[in-house]
Amino acid sequence: MMIDGVEPIVAALGGLAAPAPAGLTGKVFTGWLAAPSRLGEVFVAFTGDGVQFVRPAESVHGDADAFAEAYRDRFGRPLRPADRAPAGLLPALRGRPAPSLRLDLRRLPDFERDVLGATRRIPAGQTRPYGWIAREAGRPRAVRAVGSVLARNPVPLLVPCHRVVRADGRLGDYMFGPAHKEELLRAENVDLDQVAAFAQQGVHYLGSDTTGVVCFPTCHNARRISPAHRHGFRTIGIAVAAGYRPCRHCRPGVEAASA
C-alpha cells in the first residue's frame, strides 16, 4: 500500500511535531565566564541548577581553553560563554555572604556531596580538622578520603575547603598551594599565629571555666574567652572528663579526639 501524504491520518501525524522548549539548550550547555575573586580572576562554569566548577585563572596559566578542557573532561558537557553571573556568585567569590548562591553538585557521589556540604557549613574565620568533616559526613574513619575529595573540590571558595586543616594544628595542603590557604585564612582574620602557638603547646581545644564549654580554638565562642578563664586541652576527651561540654556551635565531637 502506498502511503499517501495527504491522507488525513498522515496529515494529523505531521501536526504532532512541536518546537523545542526554550529551556532545552540550557539543559545541554553549561555557561561559563571569568570573574574576580579572592584568588584573583577565576573561571566559573554553571548550569541552570547552580555553579558546577570554579578554577583560578592562575591554576590554568590564564588559559580559558585549558579551563574549558578540564571542565569537559570532568563533566562531559559543552560550554558556551555566559554574559551574566548566576545570583550570589560575585559576592560569594569575594568572600561575602551569598544566601542565594546555588551549587550544582548533583552528579557527585553521595560521600563527596556530604563532604562538600559539611565543608560549606564552616563559617568564615574558622577552621575545622579533616576528621571533623569525616564525622559530619557520616564516615568518621574516612579522614584520608575527605582529603582526597577536598583536593578535587569542584567549587573552591564557594565550598571553603581552605578552612579544613590538620588535627595537629598545621594547615595542611591546599589544591592551589598552602600559601594561598594561609592567605585566605588570614584575610578572614583567623589568628593563625595564635593557633600555631597553642598547637605547639599541645593545645587543640579551648574551654571556658565560666561557661563550662569547650571549643575549637577558631570558634567564635572560643575567641571570646578571656585569657584568665581560658583552659587548653590536648583532646576533647580530656576536656569532657574535666567536666566541659562540647560547644554546640563548632561541635568538637569525641571522635575527633582520636583522629
Binding site: 504532532l16 511535531a17 512541536a18 518546537p19 523545542a20 522548549p21 532545552l24 539548550t25 545541554v28 550547555f29 574549558a68 569537559r72 559543552p78 560550554l79 558556551r80
Partner: peptide, 21 residues
Amino acid sequence: LDAGFAEVVRAHERVVYSVAL
C-alpha cells in the same frame, strides 16, 4: 566542537524534541 555543537542543537532540536515527545 562546542560552538559547532551549539549549531547542531539549533538545527536539530525541533526534530529531536518532536521525536522525544
